[in-house]
Amino acid sequence: MNDSFKPKIIYFLCSWCGTGGSETASAFGLHYPENVLPFRVNCTGSLSTVYILRAFLEGADGVVISGCHPGDCHYNNGNFRARRRVAIIKSILDTLGLEPERIWFRYVAHGEGKRFVDTAAEFNDYIKKLGPNPLKTRRDI
């Protein structure tokens, strides 16, 4: 593992559970790696696939998406829709020989502060092993 490599990770969190998880984490004084950048969206179901793609092309090494657990969505089914979208984007990236494993999708509930920081740390280690996103230094994309 290259210790000098600090990946840039975008963590899309829904306003209700994902962000709630990060609030709980702060209430308990839990820490997550500083290179993980939380990005709040209203609902994971409202997150367009274009933004996930754009994050990669503009230099993110990995993207995590966290919404409410099944059945907990503030809008009833936004998380299920997000899951379908992630399935689509992963499938396309896989077909084109890009790296679908740089996208993670994990449910985090409002009270799961520990799960939030664990996910951030686990993904950070995973991306460190995977190495930098080759897209971010390309000048011809």
Partner: peptide, 20 residues
């Protein structure tokens, strides 16, 4: 980050984004 960039950029984003 890159030292050089295409103008307009992001042709790959457009094509892969449209495919998705």
């Amino acid at each position: 980050k890159r030292g050089a960039i295409r103008v307009p950029p992001n042709t790959v984003t457009y094509q892969v984004g449209r495919l998705i």
